[in-house]
Nucleic acid binder design. Structure first.
Lengths: 197, 197
DNA sequence: ATATTAACTGTCAATAGTGACAATAAATTA
DNA sequence: TAATTTATTGTCACTATTGACAGTTAATAT
């Protein structure tokens, strides 16, 4: 008694990826169904069939983006080596690949802006961001266990800020010196942890 | 032979401010004329009368936002004291006021995202941003003339990144420790310039 | 007071975007 | 092959948004 096999899950992420791409460029309201359909190489009614109406799409997008961030955070810390994980983390965050695909960060920025009048969304974005920062701080603690929490938190904040800024400004195609500056400053933050004043 | 006096200029900036506010929340496409009219406390046809059709509005917005940044940059450096202008600059950038009004930065972020498929816009945004960074570097040079250009550029980049990140994430209402971290790290960048390795 | 200029209002057609539903095609099991 | 489940397509009504124009009111100079 089973019918045609469902491809709901693949279609769902297919649509979500297209949605992320559109939201990154045109914002939450600028991502029309036609635009998404074209980006996902699907028809408009099909999108509705898989992910529901527009309101469902937006809530689905926030779940998708925030979960992607959480997964990325978890994957990030789990794939680090035992030897000097801090340095590896920075090389990972400021690698070519990470910076060249800014769509997810831009979509997150769109959600951030929308948080201005959506308390629940604001709480969720904040939580995700704090987890990200905490993950960085934990990684730093691994290499610099003797540094105090305030210094670790500050360094983690700096690394996070450098990463977010570089990635969200990626569409401007800034000179490569920016990437070098960012990575260099991040490494300096590490060195600073070794020499507590 | 002169008629009713025109208030085109005041109305224009009145509409532009409302537009910046709307774009900050809802993106370029999400800022509908009705929304802008409500925000500016004007009627929709009146907006058209003063700033033209939608396309005119968007080009007007980019001019307004980028010029505001340029003006802010110029005003920033001109109002600094002769004594330790670098430190005053940081206190200015990371003051309560600067961070609590993120609309302009968020609108700039929306323009940045749109730059993904608009080469001309990308060039203009990049130019504005580089000028901002250069202004910071010049200010730093005033206090740390013996530091080399690479170090100055890196420090300026770090300060810029910390400022942009903090301001663009302001809608999330992050804990105050973030603002303290950002300002503290910026000051550390200054101190680092005094002790060249 | 009258002419003149521009701000302001009201309104309507055209378009874009969305929601919803019916109908068809495809793929699986019994 | 028949039944069943789901993907896929086609289509239409409804709403939101925009563009454009005519007409009205307000404020100045002569």
């Amino acid at each position: 008694m089973a019918g045609r096999p469902t491809n709901r899950d693949e279609r769902y992420i297919q649509v979500m990826k297209a949605l992320v791409r559109c939201v990154a460029r045109y914002g939450l309201d600028g991502a029309s169904l036609s635009h998404i359909a074209k980006e996902a190489r699907l028809t408009r009614p099909l999108i509705r069939h898989h992910v529901g109406n527009r309101e469902d799409m937006i809530t689905g997008l926030t779940d998708f983006v925030l979960k992607s961030f959480d997964d990325q955070t978890a994957a990030m810390v789990s794939c680090l080596p035992n030897e000097r994980p801090s340095s590896a983390l920075i090389d990972l965050l400021f690698s070519e690949d990470a910076v060249s695909e800014p769509d997810m960060v831009l979509a997150f920025a769109a959600l951030t802006a929308r948080s201005l009048d959506d308390a629940k969304l604001r709480r969720r974005c904040r939580e995700t961001l704090l987890d990200f920062e905490a993950a960085i701080a934990d990684t730093l603690r691994h290499d610099h266990g003797d540094a105090d929490d305030a210094a670790l938190g500050a360094a983690a904040h700096g690394i996070m800020a450098l990463y977010f800024n570089l990635t969200s400004l990626a569409p401007l195609d800034m000179p490569k010196s920016w990437q070098n500056h960012a990575r260099g400053l991040a490494h300096e933050l590490l060195e600073k942890l070794d020499q507590p004043s």
